[in-house]
Design a protein around this nucleic acid. Structure first.
Lengths: 209, 209
DNA sequence: GTCTATATATTGATAGAC
DNA sequence: GTCTATCAATATATAGAC
């Protein structure tokens, strides 16, 4: 019985992550990755077929693990279950925490999602669509239940919400050098969730005031 | 008297923009740019020194023109001048409009700002810092004047605001394929500004209710 | 699974003629 | 400013031994 993930394969991925993160996918060569991982460069082709194969593996692994952590939305009818507001905050917290724990991969993926390729389109139509659906469901059922303000454009709320969640992990350098915050730290996560709770507190329906 | 910007130089930039946008800076070669621009590849080195030189030219040109359009904040003491809230909305509208008019370059810059290089650090410490200062001033003076809710974390508001503004232009593909909106269109701009006005309307101090 | 060796193509960049 | 010609470096990818 061998290790579930090959040691060489793991070290290639690890090296690729650190290189892609600082200099970008396109500016990184297979040889560079192999050297950093201290493995023979031919092994990259063996394990991943080509450079894009590493990125593909990285993206799938990232999203599969993410969806393991995201609790499915409880839409069930009756009492005692969590409010949509609470579920929303929990989901945001999970997503932010996950991005913080995987800063480099998060940044790589968000960056590479802005280029045009077959791989990107596939990730977009599967994982990103699933992620959007998750938050859309929360927002919509929350509105049906009267938990949220129905006056606001739902799609715009989603866009604004996603922007707010992704941006700090898409451009951590901006966070660090411009705002002097470390998006990787638990403090940031807590601060951000606190901020969101407060902002949305204002948007809850009247009886919340 | 010759043209202020060399024709060849302009066509190289134009070609580089379309290539960088779809396949990324690192995955684009000088030859590819030259071929697309239908100019000799040696001219790229002549006009821009190297590939990074094109990106540098692109960034400087982009930000210089942006700051031409952004109205300086009027902090002056007395009446009759615009409210900070209105100035904020105006600035956001300008920035969003500018990004929409320069979709490809906006996406390229936001993407490349997430890699680590000397150029990026310089752009960050000059232009991005200036942009942050612009919005920070608006928010802070607005709070001093009692136009905004002072309970909210200012820095977090800035971060969230920037995220919301940049994200759609950083990842236009997500907007198109996930939300079915075209961030380049004037409709989107209007819709987004309308949304923001409404959201912040809730956060204005009490006498606004 | 890992290595050596290598084929083949592409890269960025420049020297020098026009 | 523009071109041709070219170099040296580096790229990806594979065949075949171990």
């Amino acid at each position: 019985m061998s290790k579930s993930v090959n040691q060489t394969k793991a070290s290639i991925v690890k090296a690729a992550i650190s290189l892609f993160a600082v200099q970008g996918f396109g500016s990184t060569s297979i040889r560079e990755i192999a050297d950093t991982a201290k493995v023979n460069s031919a092994l990259v082709s063996y394990h991943f077929k080509n450079k894009q194969g590493i990125l593909e593996w990285m993206m799938i692994d990232y999203f599969e693990k993410l969806f393991t952590k995201l609790q499915p939305v409880t839409q069930g009818g009756e009492e005692q279950e969590e409010s949509c507001f609470q579920q929303l905050i929990d989901s945001l917290d999970t997503l932010i925490g996950y991005q913080a724990e995987n800063m480099e991969v998060s940044a790589i993926i968000l960056r590479e999602l802005s280029v045009d390729s077959m791989l990107v389109r596939e990730v977009m139509s599967t994982y990103m669509a699933r992620l959007k659906a998750h938050f859309a469901t929360l927002l919509e059922t929350g509105m049906e239940r009267g938990e949220f303000d129905c006056d606001l454009d739902v799609e715009m709320q989603l866009i604004h919400m996603m922007g707010g969640m992704f941006f700090p992990y898409s451009n951590p350098q901006i966070m660090r050098e411009l705002f002097y915050v470390e998006p990787m730290s638990p403090e940031y996560r807590q601060r951000y969730i606190g901020f969101l709770s407060k902002v949305w507190g204002y948007k809850l329906k009247n009886d919340e005031f």
